[in-house]
Design a protein around this nucleic acid. Sequence first.
RNA 1: UCCCCAGUAGCUCAGUUGGUCAGAGCAUCCGACUGUUAAUCGGACGGUCGUAGGUUCAAGUCCUACCUGGGGAGCCA
Length: 433
Amino acid sequence: MTSPYFRIADLAPHAGTSVTVQGWVTHLRSKGKIAFIVLRDGTGVIQCVIVKGQVDEITWARFAELTQETSVKISGELRADARAPGGFELAVQELEILGLSPLDYPIQPKEHGIDFLLDHRHLWLRSNRQRAIARVRNELEQSIHDFFYERGFLRVDTPLLTAAIGERSGLFSTEYFDEGNAYLAQTGQLYGEAAAAAFGKIYTFGPTFRAEKSKTRRHLTEFWMIEPEVAFNDSDDNMRLQEELVSYLVQRVLERCKAELSELERDTSRLEPVRAPFPRVDYSDAVAILQAKGSSIQWGDDLGAEDESLLVEDHDRPIFVVNYPREAKAFYMKENPADPRTVLCNDCLAPEGYGEIIGGSQREDDHDRLLQRIREEELPEDAYGWYLDLRKYGTFVHSGFGIGLERTVAYICGLPHLREAIAFPRMMHRLRP
RNA sequence: UCCCCAGUAGCUCAGUUGGUCAGAGCAUCCGACUGUUAAUCGGACGGUCGUAGGUUCAAGUCCUACCUGGGGAGCCA
């Protein structure tokens, strides 16, 4: 076998020559003396045509052994053909079976229930749709790094094993030598603040864990979060950074993932208007708007999922809801000098029902006020000693936010559920595969 | 933790007021076919109706409990 080996995505310029590809059989169609093999290699799909009489008897017999997901090596002439999906097809000359696949391959090119698909997630990933999602996710991850790198941010990796610190919601715990329990990190933010005091502009990028017993399309127990923290940024600076980031991400995926968005049947006209600036809605105004729309929300309540959708439905891009009541938010957010009932924070709500993709705030930089908030929340004071040090030794105005990667992937891809936005989702009832 | 929904063939589902209700399509197997696009056509194989009790002459169908999963609330990204 002398013809050169290519990935399917790289085949097009080699039409008219003899090539070799390797991949998995995704589809077999036999029409008697002519048959078709749809081959997938992760970069793309190509139809291979095998004709009785044009290959030797051994090769023709070998075709009959093929099953879905058999891995093969095929050589033949690549030619343009309008009848082939993708416009090219491979006229099979040599066919080598690399690994047979038994007849019980569970995923069919048919409808399946979500329970079944999640049980077979390791195989479900082989579908065109899952490949498209994975590629958009990858583009987003790369875009996030590029965005921050170009703006002089330092990436800081924060610990996943922590003492009790962070958000109020559920913690996963594990024994940690003689130190008692360690907890899987729910956020890197507090460490990010320490890093911002050291390095100025930083971001974290990593997995976070929440042991919330939530069963909804918007929650995972393990998800990836990006948390920038910027010294001397106030809440307004913080929102400008957020809208720049989200716009950058959406526009870049629109540019570079056209085929993937098409595979996902995403209505890109809903993404094209996503450019800074985003509208800002004060929390108190939001409550009035929602009440006018019939919501039962009262001043002081956090926004429910329904409320979020109602607020964004009038806009063609994400919006910010700013300055929530103190009671609805975390202890580390800075009191709003203009209205001490509220704190300097924002949620970024995506359109089309995707809801909160970012939560951000200016941090409390006054040592005594922060200590008071820790005591009010009855948090373990000794665990926050180092965090208070950041206000003791040269305190500084600073702000940051957390953007959920899976929620961003789901929004941009138009996915109905977060579980498709990550290769192996972790949910309350899903620990395997 | 709470509320709602579902569990029938390998998969997706239908199954009426309890009474030929053990069904279909797909997958798989056998056969036909030289341009298929989830090919088509003919035939075959395939089920302890989630589990355990109960009501009844009779339960896939009604009742109770449990198990498994899904959707939502709360919480958040």
